[in-house]
Design a protein around this nucleic acid. Sequence first.
DNA 1: GAAAAACATTTTAGGCTTAAAACAATTTTG
DNA 2: CAAAATTGTTTTAAGCCTAAAATGTTTTTC
Lengths: 172, 172
Amino acid sequence: MPAVSDCIEMLDSETKAVETPEDHAEELRLWLRLLTCTTLIEGEVRGRLRQRFDVTLPRFDLMAQLDKAPDGMTLSDVSKRMMVSNGNVTGLVERLVESGHLDRRTSETDRRVQVIRLTKLGRAEFRRMAAEHETWIADLFADLTPKDVRELMRLLAKTKASAQKSAARRKP
Amino acid sequence: MPAVSDCIEMLDSETKAVETPEDHAEELRLWLRLLTCTTLIEGEVRGRLRQRFDVTLPRFDLMAQLDKAPDGMTLSDVSKRMMVSNGNVTGLVERLVESGHLDRRTSETDRRVQVIRLTKLGRAEFRRMAAEHETWIADLFADLTPKDVRELMRLLAKTKASAQKSAARRKP
DNA sequence: GAAAAACATTTTAGGCTTAAAACAATTTTG
DNA sequence: CAAAATTGTTTTAAGCCTAAAATGTTTTTC
């Protein structure tokens, strides 16, 4: 709630809130801090992936999705999971097929659908990278106690739900 | 610490840890959740900025930095604050100067340095956007209690410090 | 069953982003 | 003071990313 001194001009003749310029500075600061953390970690991971394996982060992320789906995924699935645009996935897949990491085929039952899978090479390379990647993440979060981790997980779950609700409010 | 059952093969003849494939699945899950939250909110803000003001998020972010610095900033300053590459800022500034939102001049005392400022137009437009932007953020975080916000701030501060330490360990 | 709607993907146009190399100016060092 | 190192910016080459329009396919609806 705004401080009294900030509310003087928001009282009209009927003593009801009119235009309430509420203070949301805390939420804004929280958002900036969240963004800073993510950018920091993402940049670090990106650099290490490039240096150690000469691979980009988006390529790694896409392979991570496919590693969890032995039977393959459609491009739409990947697009939703990665929260990126369809066109983005098209290009990413193109390059990964080209380099021999992915296999792409048209679905038997629905000729609109493209199913992609990791190739043997793709899976092997991903597993090798993922093992090291996990140690980087552990190191980046090293100063958090197990309790911190649990608490962050809980609060971020709540944040995600809140944001999804807000996003849904806008586009029904 | 790994569960006993996971440690059988890590004990050598001298009962000392050899290769300890420790379990960091929790940290990994935390990182993915952090990334999901940020991507979700960032996408939402990006879309609203475009729809309401026909402006991109990077442009908005750059203007936000300059709004806090009435005396202007150098490109390097901006690059560090925004945690993006130098070349990125060059292009961004070019377009914002072109559209009349920024003023760019070479420093009097050091001819390497470019100082940029918001123009009157740039400041006015930014303030107008920022006011609305703040309400979006408030809405996206609406389900968090003030206590949640405080707690998240604390844990993210700890996360940031941890990640910075880890990053510094790599490049001394 | 033909028209309309929905769906999956690709294409397009433009902007963002990075790492690395190049360039220019200043500061440090022998 | 001149050579070397550092600093601030731009350029380059390649890839990432988005929104919107276009294309081809399947499902729904009348």
